[in-house]
């Protein structure tokens, strides 16, 4: 079976092909369908570039990118994205923010008017599943940072994407809220069997959530190590305090230290 997301020997530069600054060089990565992959690396190693290539927002000058068996030549549309900043629209309520992707992506776009009640129900269910029941009528600025980030996750999932791309989505949150949201993501992944690519610099986060962790080198980025995380699922937060967990984090940390040099 070929991988669901496959980047093969990919190089990408900003500021015009080979002449510009290389963001990533000769990067190969393959993520299976339904897998939870985490990409870690030193800051500025081109992790976000990886996201943009995998979703078809940018195209490499060398190498190939395939998603769901198709070469990527335009935005992939089967992906949902969430970033460190929740980027919610302040003039829309939480619920209206969730409906935004459905106003854009087909086939929902043409059916929105007819099936509006169904979509609203779906959005409410999604909000309930991340612990935001009855918060739909509030404006984003009436919500706490963690609640905004949950909303942002819901927005990424509302059109039932097959691929979820997360770019340091918990980076700006306090430690407790972050761990809470780890569990939210863990449960969403388990319930929906969705493929997730999480870009992060938090090793504990990567090990707790992922099936496989990829370590990137400093710029120009490529994959220097790959580690399968065999911890049994469902994982409880307690697992992060076990020796086995700590050992994996240590091992990955050694890779990062080497990658920074």
């Amino acid at each position: 079976m070929s991988a669901f997301v496959a980047l093969d020997g990919v190089s990408h530069a900003y500021g015009g092909a080979a002449g510009g600054t290389l963001a990533i060089e000769g990067l190969s990565i393959a993520v299976e369908e339904g897998e939870f992959a985490a990409v870690v690396g030193p800051s500025g190693c081109g992790k976000s570039t990886l996201m943009k290539l995998a979703t078809g927002l940018q195209f490499p000058f060398k190498g190939s990118v395939q998603v769901a068996g198709e070469p990527v030549t335009k935005p992939v549309k089967i992906a949902g994205m969430a970033f460190q900043a929740p980027t919610l629209l302040p003039w829309r309520t939480t619920l209206e923010n969730l409906l935004l992707p459905l106003e854009i992506v087909q086939p929902h776009r043409s059916e929105l008017r007819r099936r509006r009640n169904e979509y609203v129900a779906r959005a409410k269910n999604l909000l309930t599943s991340v612990g935001l029941r009855d918060q739909g009528d509030k404006y984003p600025w009436e919500l706490s940072g963690g609640m905004q980030q949950r909303t942002s996750l819901c927005r990424a999932l509302i059109h039932s994407p097959q691929l979820l791309m997360l770019d340091e989505p918990f980076g700006a949150l306090d430690a407790f809220t972050r761990e809470e949201l780890w569990c939210v993501i863990r449960d969403l992944h388990a319930a929906r069997k969705i493929t997730v690519i999480l870009v992060t610099h938090d090793l504990r986060e990567a090990v707790f959530l992922a099936d496989r962790v990829f370590v990137m080198s400093s710029r120009p980025g490529r994959i220097v190590a790959e580690r399968r995380i065999e911890l049994p699922r469902p994982r409880d937060l307690e697992v992060t305090f076990t020796q086995g967990f700590q050992d994996i984090v240590h091992e990955l940390r050694a890779h990062i230290v080497k990658a920074r040099q």
């Binding site: 935005p75 900043a85 980027t87 854009i104």
Partner: peptide, 25 residues
């Protein structure tokens, strides 16, 4: 915000969509 633009573009939003849903408001 460029991130918001990315979110919408990845869904296949045209420039006009982004203008209408985000830019003008």
């Amino acid at each position: 915000e460029p991130e918001l633009e990315d979110v919408l573009k990845a869904l296949g939003a045209s420039k006009f969509d982004i203008m209408q849903k985000v830019g003008i408001p």
